[in-house]
């Protein structure tokens, strides 16, 4: 592999492009594959197989060949409603787990650049914030304010848009109240089952960093369960 290809890979990742790095295992030649673009002669006859591996988010050698494909997709988008202490730790954990966090909080004191350097912050109510965020069924939502005014609209949006993960902070009692509000808003019990509440896996911890760890662990586990 040429150093140039490694530099191109870093550049494409920082530009948030999705691509595959292809290597001929016989001669060490590598090339970058972008869906829809032609490859050089050495690799072009494998285009279909390369695309297949790329589309299934996998890495591997193409069958009966010496061509290795490594897929680079964008990190999973996690929208965190509430610029609270737990969010600071969540951002820290997410960094090396290929999640990309966006913070939404209409409260200016909480969602400040000083508290969240290097993080995308939307200082708006969830309904307005979602106009600015592209979401799909590979997006996750974590609500942390336990203020129904802020959390509920975000939960409703995530349920309607079929996010792969929805988690809401709050005790069992808080969650019961939340569920009855959502039922009142027209949601069904099957919808409510999609909300992880109380949020996170059972670790037993109580501190903000421990709660963040239990949330991020649940996110990783759900990512694999849902094959995202």
């Amino acid at each position: 592999m040429k150093l140039e290809i490694i530099r191109e890979t870093l550049k494409n990742k920082s530009l948030k492009k999705e691509f595959a790095l292809i290597t001929n295992l016989i001669n060490g030649e590598s090339e970058i594959f972008f869906p829809g673009y032609n490859l050089s002669e050495m690799f072009s006859k494998y285009s279909e197989e390369i695309e297949k591996i790329f589309n299934s988010n996998k890495n591997g050698i193409i069958e009966n060949s010496e061509i290795f494909v490594q897929t680079y997709k964008n990190p999973i988008k996690v929208i965190v409603v509430g610029a609270v202490d737990i969010s600071i730790y969540l951002i820290d954990f997410a960094k090396n787990l290929n999640f990309e966090i966006t913070i939404v909080d209409p409260r200016g004191y909480f969602a400040s650049k000083e508290r969240f350097p290097d993080t995308k912050i939307i200082n708006k109510w969830p309904n307005e914030a979602f106009d600015e965020i592209e979401t799909n069924s590979s997006t996750a939502l974590v609500t942390l304010t336990h203020d129904p005014k802020i959390d509920d609209p975000a939960l409703q949006y995530a349920l309607k848009n079929k996010f792969f993960y929805i988690g809401a902070l709050g005790s069992k009692k808080t969650h019961e109240k939340r569920c009855s509000r959502l039922i009142g808003a027209g949601f069904k019990n099957v919808d409510l089952e999609k909300i992880n509440g109380p949020i996170g896996i059972k670790l037993g911890g109580k501190s903000p960093s421990e709660i963040a760890l239990s949330i991020i662990s649940q996110l990783v586990s759900e990512k694999y369960k849902n094959k995202i």
Partner: peptide, 18 residues
């Protein structure tokens, strides 16, 4: 910013070669 698994490895490879 989120790091992809090889980010540090590729950046360091570039540094070592430099």
């Amino acid at each position: 910013m989120s790091n992809f698994p090889e980010k540090k490895i590729f950046e360091e490879a570039d540094n070592w070669i430099k």
